[in-house]
Amino acid sequence: MPRILIAVFLMALVTYIPRVLPIAVFRREIKSVWLKSFLRYIPYAVLGVLTFPDILYSSGEFLPSLAGTVAALFLAYKEKSLLTVASGAILTAYIAGLILHI
């Protein structure tokens, strides 16, 4: 049991440090347009990379995951809330899974 707690503590530490280090020590304004643009685009790039292709296997099987992905893309395109998009994707993947195994 202590081993798990040590692992949790280390995970928390290496999650906290990258989050606070820049905002804690870096106060100057960045002048470079390229660097500003780069930082501006980071979140879109990283979320795209984290999502694809992993989402296509996220529900265990490919087809239900694909159905859930399409549902998520559609709901997000309609600008639905985070909760609606997440629940819609889960529900679609679930139903697709049921249909697949009839």
């Binding site: 979140p43 879109y44 979320l47 795209g48 984290l50 999502t51 992993d54 989402i55 996220s58 859930g68 992905t69 549902a71 998520a72 893309l73 709901l75 997000a76 639905k80 809330s81 985070l82 998009v85 997440a86 819609g88 994707a89 889960i90």
Partner: peptide, 8 residues
């Protein structure tokens, strides 16, 4: 992943 899609 759906949450990430909702953001991007």
């Amino acid at each position: 992943y759906a949450m990430f899609i909702a953001i991007i």
